[in-house]
Nucleic acid binder design. Structure first.
Lengths: 159, 159
DNA sequence: TTTGGTGCAAAATTTTTGCAGGCTA
DNA sequence: TAGCCTGCAAAAATTTTGCACCAAA
């Protein structure tokens, strides 16, 4: 999880410039606290403190953060592409920290910290020779509160 | 995996009409054979045998197939939303058949049939009360042939 | 015949790009 | 100062919608 100081170092080391826009976008994502923002949401949040920012800059900065592997792209199939700070550690090796639980009734997204995929990854490596560097796991279902609300019969709100 | 006969029965039972367009779109997906088509690709393929079809019909039929849980939506983050026939069985209970391996060098998508997620799903159920009905697992990395091509040093082509 | 489904075109969304000017290093 | 970066607006790409007509039941 990259902080501002590290981010500045990364930019410097690549010969990239340190701008308010870049720092503010990273800050929004760093303070997301479990939320997953879309480009538009990031744009709106940055505008609160820096109204002159353009949406194109947000798109360009997000692409930059993706290229630098500082953030990850996630798609919850709600029509928006969302982003979150990558959990990748400086020493690399383990990028496997959490999975997403998506409630089909209320649309809420929960994070679950745990990695139990080593077995599966080993099997894939052995059987297919595929070298895994990262994974994305999404579980669709019904959250506790939606199950209780409907007495066990949960109704889908979205596909 | 739904075949044409079953599809017709499902449509009938819901009071929906059986049209050439619907049958042809299902046929394209049923013959995809491991490939994952985007809306545009489905449109182009159906046009070969039914040139008068409109793109809007493809979008509407795909939404219908999603609602009926005959197909699943997949996003490989290449800018296109893709679809594949759902593996869901008639008797329900198990929808957990395969995962996707996405090569970051050549972009190819491989499928891996295996489910070793029961342990993780049980844990999630127990700890969070979240009732899982389906999951989507994507592994990013480098396929065997790309590893060999580059002598073990694989170069990313895309994020 | 009735109703749902389709094709077309327009509209709405989301994302990318070109360019002149501004800011970081 | 040089060149990267930004904002704006236009363009491109993807998806949805309205409507008149057509076709399945």
């Amino acid at each position: 999880m990259v902080n501002e100081k590290q981010f500045i170092e990364i930019l410097k080391s690549k010969g990239l410039k340190i701008t308010n826009q870049r720092l503010l976008i990273l800050e929004v994502l760093a303070n997301a606290n479990g939320k997953h923002y879309s480009t538009e949401e990031i744009y709106d949040l940055v505008k609160l403190t820096y109204p002159e920012i353009g949406l194109a800059t947000v798109y360009r900065t997000i692409q930059l953060l993706l290229d630098l592997e500082i953030i990850d792209k996630i798609n919850f199939d709600d029509g928006f592409v969302r982003y979150e700070l990558s959990e990748q550690l400086e020493n690399n090796s383990s990028k496997h920290q959490h999975h997403h639980l998506i409630c089909k009734a209320c649309g809420q997204v929960f994070s679950f910290k745990e990695d139990l995929l080593e077995l599966l990854e080993e099997k894939i490596k052995k059987e297919m020779g595929f070298q895994i560097s990262n994974h994305e796991v999404k579980f669709y279902g019904f959250c506790k509160s939606c199950q209780e609300k409907n007495g066990g019969v949960s109704v889908e709100k979205r596909q």
